[in-house]
Amino acid sequence: MANLLLTNRCLRACPYCFAGRELEPGGRGTSVSWEDAVYVADFLFRSGEDRLALLGGEPMLHPEFVDLLLYFRARGLHLTVFTSGMGPAATLRALEAHLPAFDGDTLQFVCNLNDPEQTPPARGEPARVHRFLTAFGPWVMPAFTIYRPDFRLEFLFDLIGQHGLTRHLRLGVAHPVPGAPSRHVSPAQYREIAGRLCSYRPLFERFRVKPGFDCGFPMCQFTDAQLGWLQRLCGEAARFECGAAIDIAPDMSLYHCFPLSRFQRRSLYEFDTLADVNRFYDRLRDDLHAELPGIFEECDDCIQRREGSCAGGGACHLMSRMIGEASVRLPEIDRALADVGVPGRARTD
């Protein structure tokens, strides 16, 4: 699945945001044009892909968000909207009015929610999020980004019950942005985080909420008992991946994921299909892993990593570690680093 950033404008300023310079917190931002929206739909059709994730910034800030949503649906795409829930009131009203156009599972919202105590919201934010969740609760999968080991999930279970959100919690960890300061979780904190997550076992079980991991969690940070519990709860083995998100910016530039947005940035117009894009960014990740198999020393010999059941943590951590080190890397990596201005690296041809 590809992610299309409808706009790079965002109303929130989350302390852990790893979208970095891709977003324009204030200002008017850049929005996807209709011409490019048609192009993306065509591109996905050509790729045999019928799913599209719409991101921002805050995608609902695109002035024609509802129209775009309906257009992509009319093109036969199943849509997932990643939102803060902070859409303009008029947009939410229009969205509500057109919700019947989306039958079955053709539209889903993933709403990234912050703990109001640990991440104090801006003025007016809770009311707006509340309005969104009230209107679209059954279409909303709650999501939470862990950026401190003492995170708290209680508020989420409240919201799930209060608004009838889907009982699947999407959990991500705050990633580093290589070469730029950002608040993130270090590899040393993962075991503590795994333990804290499993401490919410009673709530997960009582509310029948299934956790799912966004990319970057290493499997080894969970005990066998914890993994067994997760599998029983979810009905399937948890996945510990780090794949290319394939983010398409409003100007149709393309990158692996937010944290790696400065590396190997390309244009969508350079590729014929999504498979071509995936192959391209797989190579970037393979290059990184050839140099550093994973975020821990133990990753070198880890059988789960070799067999593909764990990615060995996020590639962004690997890239972060390489920045500032001596130039002994693979030429491909050095070129990627040089492209984003890391000193002492060989320039691209």
């Binding site: 024609e64 509802v66 129209d67 775009l68 309906l70 649906r73 229009a94 057109h98 156009a101």
Partner: peptide, 10 residues
């Protein structure tokens, strides 16, 4: 017209 108004007619 607006696409949202046109969409049902497509």
């Amino acid at each position: 017209g607006r696409f949202r108004d046109l969409a049902p007619s497509i």
